[in-house]
Amino acid sequence: MRPGKLAGRVYAGLVYAALYFPLLIVIAFSFNDAKRNLIWKGFTVKWYGTLFADAELVAALWTSLKVAATASLIATLMGLLASYVLVHHPRLRAKRAYDSALSVPLMVPEIILGVGLLSLYTRVCFDLSFWGLVCAHVVYCLPFVVWVVKARISSLKGHSVEEAAMDLGATEWQAFHKITLPLAWPAILAGGMLAFTVSFEDFVTSFFVAGVGTTTLPIKIYSMMKFGITPEINAMSTILLVLTLLLVAAYYFLNTEKNQDQLPV
């Protein structure tokens, strides 16, 4: 091994360790049998028990799941249409405007959209609850869906699969729903997973937009953090982290090359 490569490995290892160390600490201390997060006192899962006995927490988890499911579904449908058009319609007017509009949510500081939506919702008397949250989250989910799905649809177009189908007599609609959709399916699902994660984890926008009745899990953690550290927060954060990990792992496996290049040709 070249010395450069070895040094690089050591360096990368250190950076990744620093990146994950805080998260691992949270997880480790969620199993600590002590009321205060001081010293390791022994292994326990009792904090998870108290967590699920807390009706408010379970409600927050349920709200988070519902919001994320709705937002990611809407974002996936709209993102799929947008991706298809952006790839397949060559003479689309204002294509660059669409492209940049779809990346703006990734650039704007979240607090801006948070207070902006808060102003908008109060002005038009839009009820600050479930749907307010969903509408806001879709904005953040959309770029991720388009990012994943568009890549897949362009690679399919590169293989000219739709063209082949139409040469053999398929109509454009048939080519879309019999060729494009099934082949792009893993990527569509992967984009949806990513959107779900983005919505599920979102704090800043939700913090400004959520009404009194709609507390999501990150908001719940925030309000509990105001009262100091308790092992229950560790346990809840761990659940959140594990869910993210599972979703992102699912995304990764759905979106790997191996899964994508199974063209039936």
Binding site: A12, Y16, L19, Y20, P22, L23, I25, V26, F29, N37, L194, T197, V198, E201, D202, F203, V204, L217, P218, I221, Y222, M225, I229, I233, N234, S237, L240, L241, T244, L245, V248, Y252, T256
Partner: peptide, 25 residues
Amino acid sequence: NLLLLLLMLPLWTSCTVEIYAWIII
């Protein structure tokens, strides 16, 4: 791809969890 994904994973964890971790540390 795996290394890049591992880099992005913390982006998708809620910022409240990350802050909580630093408070513990």
